[in-house]
Amino acid sequence: MRAIVSVIGKDRMGIIAKVSGLLYSIDINVLDLSQSVLQDYFHMIMLVDISKCGRKFSDIASSLATLGEEIGMSIKIQHEDIFNAMHKI
């Protein structure tokens, strides 16, 4: 199953390292990544494969949310289908 991780917040050092470190530690593979910083505002979208991660989706979501709180960012994960449904015919 593929999902989208979105990370938004004020820029600081090590955001990609922290997020990808957590994903690596729970066997989530990053397939694609796009990030930008506009006026100190960090924004990153990652396409990930969670099929090798044995955890429940809600547990993955709460681990990411907890990391987000630690580093002062908003981090959420959503099944990619919601974006396909809304934006592709």
Binding site: I45, L47, I82, F83, N84, M86
Partner: peptide, 12 residues
């Protein structure tokens, strides 16, 4: 990769 603006729009 899904269009970045589409992801932003949905979440907004």
């Amino acid at each position: 990769m899904i269009d970045r603006n589409a992801i932003l729009e949905t979440n907004e």
